[in-house]
Design a protein around this nucleic acid. Structure first.
Lengths: 232, 232
DNA sequence: CTGCTTTATTGACTACAAGTCATTTATACG
DNA sequence: CGTATAAATGACTTGTAGTCAATAAAGCAG
């Protein structure tokens, strides 16, 4: 019961529909939506899902509360938009520099793990929003997020695993889908742990170690991953 | 800012403190708390964290709303209690029948995986509550849950991994803590997927397959786990 | 058992935030 | 311009977590 969400207003507009004068207005609307999403990301990151207030987001984005509900339908819809923007803002595995890719599948994994630590410090907002998305108790929202990940696969795990298989580094005797799931699961968790460690020490178990410890842990993690999905 | 939770009232009472007449009252109070937790589990399971209303829980447990806040301090506190009760209600790895344990570490993992499917159907309420707990967006709550898992380790993963190492089935060249984390992560995710499949098809990706497919997937999963943490 | 003290319980009340919608304002276009 | 259509506004409604003064129950001394 109680599913009476506002359907989001049809997106900013049908984009230059025949005539050309609306162009300006449409562009302005798109910019507005973008601004709202950006502010929302920041607020969700800082205050958490429940702690973030739609009215505050509206104020800071320079629009009214009504406009937000007009565009996104509900707070959950707004969060979803922020989450998707955050997820899309990250690099895919195969965006690693050529020499890293050249070094292979597991070298690339290592590269991104080491990289994440620094990236989180640089721009923690999208990371925190993804963290919130990973642990969102609203199962309706959870489903949307899962569907989004399956549909868009922003980190490009499918292509990355194919890359690994083609290079002969990843085993072929297991359904690739299973491998993709495993990589997604482990990398998500690992990334969440890194993010949580940076942003919320104590959220995950043992932490607060020196860069050397950290490096050692990454090595062990990749070693486990290699044992699991690497060719024997 | 805005951390003004009610501290939960000191637990039901200091238990038979010197005199003996309070005994009855204390017992009744304990029973009441238990009843509340049970009802709370059911409501959270059915309606989700946000959907569950404290007042309804109070009504069904035959107490006033105030009493709930008296005992648990906040809705989050109540959820935590329900979560802990749910988590404690499951068997630990080493609770498997002797002949299963005899068959070894990975046989035991397989046993529990196959078992979970049926257990979820029998008593889905605690499973759903754990699922909610796994994906709770309130990071404060999240921390409490992590701490609880670390403190109590209800599935007994630490002991189980030690068991595997002692039997010579689990590798010794990696920090056991890392292995414990890996097992926890993978089993949690796998269990969540099973639970979600039963309770909320489509929540996770590919699903709704025949028991044979399912079995096949479990076999592949255990095979990956064995490759990762088994002795070479 | 009785009266007094302390503790537990209650539910009307408050506070606050999501979501609505009649009204106002801006835009499209003849 | 003038009129029609669409977007934006913010005061208002709704619903629920959390409070607290008032009340009931439990403990206890005599």
């Amino acid at each position: 019961m109680s599913e009476k969400r506002n359907p989001p207003r049809s997106p900013p507009a049908p984009r230059g529909s025949g005539h050309r004068s609306p162009q300006r207005a449409v562009a302005r609307q798109e910019a507005k939506v973008e601004r709202i999403v950006e502010v929302a990301m920041e607020r969700f990151a800082v205050a958490g899902y429940e702690g973030a207030r739609v009215e505050t987001i509206a104020e800071r984005a320079g629009v009214s509360k009504g406009a937000i509900f007009g565009y996104f339908g509900s707070k959950a819809g707004l969060f979803l938009a922020a989450y998707e923007a955050a997820a899309r803002s990250f690099s895919a595995y195969l965006d690693a520099p050529p020499e890293v890719l050249e070094a292979g599948f597991f070298a690339t994994v290592t590269y991104w793990l080491e990289r994440t630590t620094r990236l989180v410090q640089d721009s923690w907002i999208p990371y925190r929003v993804t963290l919130l998305g990973s642990y969102c108790s609203d199962l309706h929202l959870r489903r949307e997020i899962t569907q989004f990940q399956l549909r868009e696969d922003p980190p490009g795990t499918r292509a990355f695993v194919r890359f690994g298989i083609e290079r002969g580094e990843v085993r072929r005797d297991i359904d690739p889908k299973m491998i993709v799931s495993l990589v997604d699961w482990l990398m998500d968790r690992c990334q969440d742990a890194i993010v949580a460690e940076e942003l919320d020490p104590g959220l995950f178990g043992a932490n607060a170690q020196s860069p050397e410890d950290r490096h050692e842990r990454y090595m062990q993690f990749v070693e486990l991953l290699r044992s699991a999905i690497g060719v024997r």
